Amino acid sequence: MTDAEFEALRVFLKARSGLALSPDKRYLVESRLAAVCTRFKIERLSHLVREIRTGRSSALEKATIEAMTTNETFFFRDKTPFDLFQEVLLPKYLKERAASRRLRIWCAAASSGQEPYSLAMLLKEASARMPGWHIDIVATDISTEVLEKAKAGLYNQFEVQRGLPIRFLVKYFTQVGEQWQISQDIRSMIDFRYLNLLDDFSRLGQFDIVYCRNVLIYFDAALKADVLRRIANTMAADGSLLLGASETVLGVTDALALDPGHRGLYAKAAAANVTKLFAVRAR
């Protein structure tokens, strides 16, 4: 693959998925797209680039994008975002949404489903405290392949051993051959949908809680700011956002601000400022 061909792929991937590949990721492109070439019976990577440039095959374009997206995830990944959900967010919204008894959660870049299923299990554990509540969990991803896996709720032994408490495995999973399938009761709690983070979010509606973790690291600064601004627009006035451990809104956007009381938790800027003002007055 020539420098010009690699540059053409970089431009294509950024325009279609937001993925910003640095020049040193050339080896990654070549290794991941080799399988795409084999699948589409394309002899060389340079021929794949040529086909993409013609725009004749939407299937090839889709496969190329999916091959380059990172789908690393596991149950209760990083622990803290789920501790915050149990200890801070759920008590907050049980109180603040007591009248409507409705809670809406969005898991962006949900990959193969472990994140939304982790939240669903925590909500199921709390169901005795939530009689009559209507819970919406919307989980989106750009990859239709991982979305199909997520919908099936089937995971191998390695996947269920990564972060999943054994009591949840026993309680919510059934062994199917060499795999484990999460219960239909839990699967029915999630609405899996295709969504490219470059697309309009307005059709998703409004959310109380948004998880958008470990995806913005692949975007450049301008796109990070744009995605965060549009996420803020989907959030309720008192909505909450959780990002990945290495991600922040600081220096990226003024639409969101760090929750002063909880590291890793973000709120709409106006709401965060009000919280901070009341905290100062209470001293």
Rank of each mutant, 00 (worst) to 15 (best):
E159H: 03
Q184T: 14
D226H: 11
A99D: 13
F173D: 05
S118H: 04
A109F: 03
N233C: 08
A257V: 04
S22I: 04
F40I: 08
A272V: 06
A67R: 06
Q179I: 00
D238R: 11
D78P: 05
I217G: 04
R104G: 03
A110M: 05
A108L: 03
R213H: 06
Y117L: 08
G177C: 04
L21Y: 05
A4E: 15
A270Y: 10
V274S: 11
S111T: 12
T174C: 09
L123Q: 05
L265I: 05
L169G: 12
I135T: 11
I135E: 02
I142Q: 01
S246N: 09
A236P: 00
A63H: 03
L60H: 12
Q86M: 08
S31Y: 09
S112E: 02
L169P: 10
A15N: 15
S118V: 07
Y155W: 05
V138H: 08
V138E: 02
M1H: 06
G264D: 03
L119Y: 09
L89K: 06
F201P: 02
S143K: 10
A225I: 04
R44I: 00
F219K: 10
R44W: 03
S46D: 13
D238L: 08
W106F: 03
L60N: 07
Q157G: 12
S57T: 08
R101L: 10
F278Y: 13
L90E: 07
I52Q: 01
D199Y: 10
I186S: 00
Q157H: 14
R167G: 01
A271G: 02
D238N: 15
R101Q: 14
I42M: 06
V280G: 00
V29M: 12
R129V: 00
V146P: 02
